[in-house]
Design a protein around this nucleic acid. Structure first.
Lengths: 192, 192
DNA sequence: AGGCGACGTGAACGGTCGCTAACGTGAATG
DNA sequence: CATTCACGTTAGCGACCGTTCACGTCGCCT
């Protein structure tokens, strides 16, 4: 039988398709056979690449969290002015949310389905990412306390992550402009 | 055996506990036996009150959508000025999101697990609710097109619905103020 | 008193799911 | 050329899950 040349690695192919399926049906709503079928192999072949279904989810969510944190740290290193940093963070996060809506969806929907150690790891990475935002907000004088800044940061994430609910019908660049403007205004309006 | 006096109706008790469990573990992550155990009965007793597990979810989501739409229509009837209407809508939605975080979570996470007809019904109700916001935004001159207004409305929902992610550590009234202010600013900042 | 309906139980069913086992194969390695 | 290894296959296992069934038990109505 002719072997189909695999352009991207099988692992990444599986991760991509699994993300799409998890986003649409939820972790427990997708079967191993379903994921296999989506990449053209069948069922148990996945166990050549991942130790378990939960392990697959873990790699997906850890990857997302690491990517976000790395991007945040990069921006933090580039900008000393907190307002500039906030703008860079907004641009970075908005871009990610618009480019990878499935990952965004899975990240905050299926975190509870992770095994304990992986969940702790993801939560730690997420917390570090949030703290970058919190620090910028406080230093910019846009939040009266760390607590308030945390609420504001989560609110900003919710705003930018609304992408999966509305992007279906709208151009990505148009949405990017709207979300960026709204997020910036929301954060700057927050009273001290 | 002594019969335990049931204060609220069994149906509502089941709906409440099921919402909590669905919010935490997802629809497919909760078993019929688990829901039963949460209300003190076991497993199949639920079928005395609901036709199926999907039927239970359907009643939950339809109830939420109807409540939101009714509240939106009520505000729309009370306010002729679109900016006043927006403020009333923000107050209404924020209050709901803060008071019922589990329902908010289930609503936009498990819609995909509804049977087709119920899903269509919920989507229709949601769309009608969104259209109230869209109409107010356009009439207020805060959106250049219906499309832009829809993106803005979904973004506002994402902001206000961020509650379940951050309220755990913050007082509800404090969070309400922050979310209200941020949402108002976000919507008013959106350029024409 | 008697029957009925609401509500609950435990047992059992068919189906699906995650995962393992046993096996096959083609390409690189020595 | 023989071996190994990466990567797939199908068959089957144990567990769980949604649902149904047969049955029991109250409280209420006539």
């Amino acid at each position: 039988m002719p072997r189909v040349p695999v352009t991207t690695s099988r692992r990444e192919q599986i991760l991509t398709e699994a993300a799409r399926l998890f986003a649409r049906h939820g972790f427990h709503g997708v079967s191993i056979d379903g994921i296999g079928a989506a990449v053209g192999v069948s069922g148990p072949a996945l166990y050549r690449h991942f130790p378990s279904k939960e392990g697959l989810l873990a790699e997906m969510l850890v990857g997302i969290s690491e990517h976000l944190l790395a991007g945040g740290q990069e921006r933090a290193a580039e900008h000393t002015d907190p307002v500039d940093l906030l703008d860079a963070l907004i641009a970075f996060h908005t871009d990610f949310a618009l480019r990878q809506p499935e990952l965004i969806t899975v990240q905050d929907r299926d975190l509870a389905n992770l095994p304990d150690d992986a969940r702790r790891r993801v939560r730690g990475l997420q917390r570090a990412y949030v703290e970058i935002w919190v620090g910028a907000l406080v230093r910019a004088g846009l939040a009266g306390s760390d607590e308030a800044a945390r609420v504001a940061a989560h609110a900003a994430f919710g705003l930018m992550n609304s992408t999966p609910r509305s992007t279906t019908h709208t151009g990505a660049d148009v949405a990017a402009g709207i979300l960026t403007t709204m997020t910036r205004a929301a954060l700057h309006a927050h009273p001290v």
